[in-house]
Every structure is written in C-alpha cells, then in structure tokens.
C-alpha cells in the first residue's frame, strides 16, 4: 500500500534531507519519526501511515522515515537526549521509532529496535504526543 502521510528522507542528499526535516518540523503536526529499514520497520512505517489520518482529537499526523541511523542524527538525537530516552545502555542506533509533540517539539517515549511496532504501540506513541500537545 502506498504511503500517503509519510515523507521518506533521502540518504544520499543531506541538504535535501535537512530541508525536508525542517519543513516537517515547521508544520503544525504530530510527527512520528521512524528509523531503519528492516522488514519490521517497513511494516511499522505502513502502520504509522495508516494511523496518521485517524487522530481521535483531530490532530494532523505526519510520518518521517529515515532509513538509517546516520542521516539527521545530529538533528534528531537531541530530542532523545532531552527526554532521557538515550542512555548508556540505549544508544541512538537502538531506537526504532519515536513521536514528537507540537511546538515545542519533544519526545516522550520510544520503541526500541527489538520492540514490537504494531498498531497498539504506534497509536500509543501518537496519543502520548497528542496529549502532551493539548
């Protein structure tokens, strides 16, 4: 199924990647960020995309998919540090998914790369970010 609410970040064009990220960041939307390109992650992106238009509170939801943990690391990692999600035993490379609130952008929790990215967990991340955006 096509991804209708997801922006794929190019891995070979950093300026474009940064521009796309800035564009999404500046939009008034709840922003789900998915990292990696495993099969489970691809399925997870589809789930996040499916859930995007179903916000029960009417929030706009968007998905940003970065297929590796290198591109935009400098931009994204601080959110996880600020939320104390990244710790000694959980580096950036072990994060699969997290969700940013409306402005000011911040993350609350995440899905670990070994974690399940199913409808419940992804929706839970959306709900968490939305409730923090009220």
């Amino acid at each position: 199924m096509a991804l209708q609410h997801t922006t794929e970040i190019p891995l070979d064009d950093l300026p474009k990647a940064q521009a796309l990220y800035q564009g999404l960041k500046n939009q008034k939307c709840i922003l789900m960020i998915v990292l990696g390109d495993s099969k489970a992650t691809q399925d997870g992106v589809q789930i996040a995309d499916n859930l995007a238009p179903t916000s029960p509170g009417g929030f706009t939801r968007k998905v940003m998919w970065v297929k590796n943990h290198t591109v935009l690391k400098e931009e994204l990692e601080p959110y996880l540090h600020a939320a104390e999600i990244i710790k000694d035993d959980t580096p950036y490379e072990e994060i699969k998914c997290f969700c940013l609130t409306l402005s000011p952008r911040k993350a609350q929790s995440r899905i670990h790369k070994n974690g399940v990215m199913d409808y419940i967990r992804v929706e839970q991340l959306y709900i968490e970010a939305e409730s923090q955006s009220l």
Partner: peptide
C-alpha cells in the same frame, strides 16, 4: 477527557 481516556486505555494494554 478524551486523551485521559485514550492514555488510560493504551497504557492498560501495554
């Protein structure tokens, strides 16, 4: 109210 209920529901499932 809505988000308190949704948070409670999904946290319970978790």
């Amino acid at each position: 109210e809505l988000y308190a209920g949704l948070t409670g529901f999904y946290n319970y499932l978790g």
